[in-house]
Design a protein around this nucleic acid. Structure first.
Lengths: 108, 108
DNA sequence: CTCGAAGTACGACGCACATCATACTTCTCT
DNA sequence: AGAGAAGTATGATGTGCGTCGTACTTCGAG
């Protein structure tokens, strides 16, 4: 969907809370977010963010996360990948990401 | 579903993050939570928490919120109602509820 | 005791969406 | 230039779930 490498000034805004929640409420996508959030660089190639899934299914989930404003498509090394939009998320819903990741950790 | 007035010591535990998110990711249920969170007493009769919905649909949503551990069924005055389980939610996912409600407010 | 109001239970229906297979694009590397 | 890896697009499929209508329960008020 993205013409690849969306310019910073025309990234989709982080979606309304309800839509954002929908994006995060899927187990596959929540795991994708968790992995990116755990990554020190905050970015990773697509294939590092899932397992045991058809590639096209993964693309589908990425699309939803990008449209929700949580991910930003980006080149990472030679491959396509995604970066977690920590700043934008923090501005739209302060503390939400931290609370979620904290809860996921504790859950282990 | 509840034998009415569940004893405190056998309330369902707050669900795993992913299930909790699913419960909150529906617009109707999110609004229910918002209203209860906005209520100073933190509780309200069922009918105060929705509008323009079939009663049985509302019951369905309440059930999901109770099973997710977000609501506790309780008598409020002469009617049945629900109380927001702030404490339990805070323990399971510290800061999550606050972050959500804050984001909803800012969304005005 | 009956009536009505407030919820719940149950069944049916329709749509959204998670999934997959296949085909296509677009890189990089040799 | 050709091969292969990595993602994307598209179409098909099945199911989960949000919705409703109707019938049932329960409770308070008259």
């Amino acid at each position: 969907m993205p013409p690849w490498e969306i310019p910073s000034d025309q990234l989709p805004p982080v979606a309304a809370v309800q839509k954002l929640l929908r994006a995060l409420a899927d187990p596959v996508r929540l795991e994708m977010v968790r992995r990116l959030a755990a990554d020190p660089a905050g970015e990773a190639p697509c294939s590092d963010l899932y397992e045991g899934l058809n590639k096209s299914t993964a693309t589908h989930h990425f699309k939803i996360l990008v449209e929700a404003g949580a991910f930003r498509p980006v080149m990472v090394g030679p491959s396509r990948g995604h970066r977690l939009r920590r700043d934008a998320l923090q501005e739209a819903a302060p503390g939400l990401l931290d609370a979620l990741m904290g809860a996921l950790d504790r859950e282990n």
